[in-house]
């Protein structure tokens, strides 16, 4: 099955349950947006999918094209085609973007095969042009001293270079002004293809003006409480999440089968 399938996922950190029985399917070729108020567990979901060690999955499954990714180490998941664009990407002092990405691309090659430097740079420059990134970025340390917009562009650059099967974009619009937002959205749109499924996590509707989702899900208190088409985003923008706050108490209880 060509989809990223999350089934009845429950996640805790320090004995507090943050994701409470979440189920969601993202088929390849589609863009699904998850929207929700602060504290609904959106970012936790993103980190859990990538395999962050701080979170404990108590039950549930995450299948990528039928394979259980929860059994894989974070780097294995990534090599199998899962990508997370971080809300707050780490700064890696002293490691240039060129070296960092080369290591990531090299890791995807079969054992014993060396990355061809000219091919690599040709592709890197092509993707940087797409994201309107100056080529001098390649020699800069990863994210160090980058503006918010530069960091997010760098995330999308990695997405473009690593060509995953499924990408989770965590609040990719945060910290972006309108110009930067358009550049990032253009980058994502250019990567839309039948071979990529995207899970777009956002707090605001404005990103969805530029990246039109196929489906929108509302996440509250660690669960999907409503799913719909792209028009759901507009409704949320208008009415806010308040109508779901009442649902909050209900979902606070153990989910009914």
């Amino acid at each position: 099955m060509s989809q990223l399938s999350i089934h009845n996922l429950r996640v805790s950190i320090a004995d507090q349950e943050i994701i409470r029985g979440l189920s969601l399917d993202v088929p390849k070729g589609e863009i699904h947006a998850i929207m929700g108020p602060n504290g609904s567990g959106k970012s936790t979901l993103a980190k859990v999918l990538a395999g962050h060690p701080d979170y404990k999955v108590t039950t549930g499954q995450v299948l990528m094209d039928g394979e259980n990714v929860l059994e894989l180490a974070p780097d294995e998941r990534a090599r199998k085609g899962l990508f997370l664009a971080f809300q707050y990407p780490s700064e890696i002092p002293g490691v240039s973007i060129a070296n960092f990405l080369r290591a990531a691309v090299q890791a995807r090659l079969p054992e014993g095969e060396e990355l061809e430097a000219t091919d690599y740079y040709a592709k890197l420059y092509e993707k940087m042009d797409l994201l309107e990134m100056d080529r001098s970025f390649t020699s800069r340390s990863v994210n160090e001293g980058f503006s918010g917009g530069e960091k997010k562009r760098n995330e999308i650059l990695q997405l473009a270079m690593l060509e995953p099967k499924y990408a989770v974009l965590d609040e990719t619009d945060s910290g972006l002004d309108i110009d930067a937002l358009k550049v990032v959205a253009n980058g994502v749109n250019s990567l839309r293809s039948p071979n990529l499924g995207v899970l777009l996590i956002t707090h605001y509707q404005r990103l969805l003006d530029y990246i039109i989702p196929d489906h929108v899900h509302v996440m509250v208190q660690g669960r999907i409480v409503r799913s719909g088409g792209k028009e759901l985003a507009l409704e949320l923008e208008e009415k806010g999440y308040e109508s779901y706050e009442t649902v909050k108490d209900e979902v606070g209880e153990p989910a009914l089968a």
């Binding site: 974070p74 997370l84 890696i92 002092p93």
Partner: peptide, 30 residues
Amino acid sequence: IDEDEMFYLLSRGIPMSVAKQLLVSGFLNE
């Protein structure tokens, strides 16, 4: 080694041993 930095590298598919080497080189590069 900063755990967040390590996770960031791992999340890009870079194996632990290579990630460690990159982070150490980065530390020394300054």
